[in-house]
Design a protein around this nucleic acid. Structure first.
Lengths: 277, 277
DNA sequence: CACTATTTGTCCGTATGTATG
DNA sequence: TCATACATACGGACAAATAGT
């Protein structure tokens, strides 16, 4: 009895009802709960389901139609249009760090901001600098053929950053620049999370304000464990996803679980779907 | 010249202006751009920055204050209140799959829905079942001490799922149940992405509609490569983050990059911050 | 070819929320 | 606080296209 699960919208929220419903339906379609051409609930049905007026339900469907997720026709109902499969173009690399390099080489970059500034508390802590130390800060946009997919803010200790400038950053991946500065990169730690697009990044990433973004914060360190780069990346989830394979590894006689990241790769999907007319 | 970057709100969006501004300020505070007790822009300043009226700016600040992110006092301005550091409690496990098991054992689970149904197209494809095959579907909420942090929807082929029921699902992690059914788990593939909380999951995760969520879609397969479980998990990013360490590995004489996930772990942070009064 | 049921498209009037000055 | 403008949401009514009998 799936339909019995209480679907509800909340009138007290700042978001309009029609948009709440739109989001739910959109999720259902993207999650693959329908086949291409499937008939979905009409205006009257939706209105009953969500306990709203027909006009409100109608507007939610209109938003879906404006985005091209459904087609509507009088007397025929509302039908789901599945995107032309949008097969994820995967970077054919193995290994995560190699992948990071390959990404830097295969995509186009635009340098948005570049300056030297006093490290903010969080940045200083991550790079293990004393408060007040200077860092090089760069904001870059990364492009795929069909548009921007990532917004990267990088911090490098000024001592290292002085050895290259704007032009190098626009041409080469930062990891490569660091290596050429004599930094022996040992590894990295990263945290994957999610945020919303605010008014600064939304226009740059050509997405809507309040759209979900994948957020990856990474600290790269050299072989001595000294941090050399602090980067936070915001990614459009429709164009970039983090893919990895987990393999079970038997360790000795105990029936313990251990794991290993085997063929790890970030997949870049090229969906050309647009937001909000 | 960081402040010069054009901050703007979009009037064409369905979200009210005051709420857009609220989200921006909230992000800035959470991202650590201020220290505890820092003074932030007042009503007049905000109104100028975002090109809105003072009342609108005021309301954004009022929402922040209601959430406890700032304190406001006449004549003293608006000051940031940093959450009590909220140190992420890390699961002390090594290895990703082991981690998945440990998570299942250490956290509380509530079974929301449980039924058998015909596999939707995407589920059938992921589990390599022919269209129309039956699957066991379970929706679970996972709790930390301070509240829910993940919403999990799992699909298991009915042939396997018939061997356990509701009670087992509430007590044991699904991976353990599968093992006891004779399934030899070989590994998994997962994709990490981001979405928005819709009206179904938002109340369950005790978060706002439209809040960002980490989304992990995973297919677990046995040693023959046959899929045995399809799971999509939605996670509150303030309570659950995906942490991993990347290590550079020298492979032979070529100066190539290879990578390995070494001490991988998911960190669970216990922030007790509440949303929307 | 009706006739009908269904479903979308369009219109009205009204009440409330949002935002400005 | 007030007046104004616009968006949101409701209920109801009718027209137009489609599919089935």
């Amino acid at each position: 009895m799936r339909g019995a699960a209480a679907l509800a919208v909340d009138e007290r929220l700042p978001t309009p009802l029609y948009h709440q419903i739109y989001l739910i339906l959109r999720n259902q379609i993207i999650d693959g709960r329908h086949n291409d051409g499937d008939l979905i609930a009409g205006e009257e049905d939706l209105a009953r389901q969500f306990n709203v007026s027909r006009i409100t339900a109608r507007r939610a469907l209109a938003e879906l139609a404006a985005e091209g997720l459904v087609v509507r026709a009088r007397g025929r109902g509302t039908r789901v249009i599945k995107p032309p499969s949008a097969p994820p173009i995967r970077a054919n690399v193995e290994g995560l760090i190699e992948n990071l390099m390959a990404m830097g080489l295969k995509t186009q970059v635009k340098l948005i901001e570049f300056d030297y500034e006093i490290a903010s508390p969080d940045v200083a802590r991550a790079l293990k600098l004393e408060p007040g130390a200077e860092v090089q800060r760069a904001v870059r946009l990364r492009f795929l053929t069909d548009g921007p997919f990532s917004y990267l803010t990088t911090y490098v200790p000024a001592s290292i950053g002085r050895q290259f400038g704007r032009k190098e950053l626009e041409r080469e991946p930062l990891l490569g620049l660091l290596e050429r500065c004599g930094v022996k990169i040992g590894g990295a730690e990263q945290t994957i999370s999610a945020t919303l697009a605010d008014t600064r990044v939304a226009p740059l990433l050509q997405t809507a304000i309040g759209a979900p973004l994948l957020r990856i914060v990474r600290v790269v360190h050299d072989r001595e464990g000294l941090p050399v780069e602090y980067i936070t990346g915001l990614y459009r989830p429709d164009r970039y996803q983090y893919r990895m394979a987990l393999a079970r590894v038997e360790t000795g006689d105990r029936n313990t679980w251990s794991a290993n990241l085997d063929p790890a790769e970030a997949s870049v999907s090229s969906s050309n779907r647009e937001k909000r007319k």
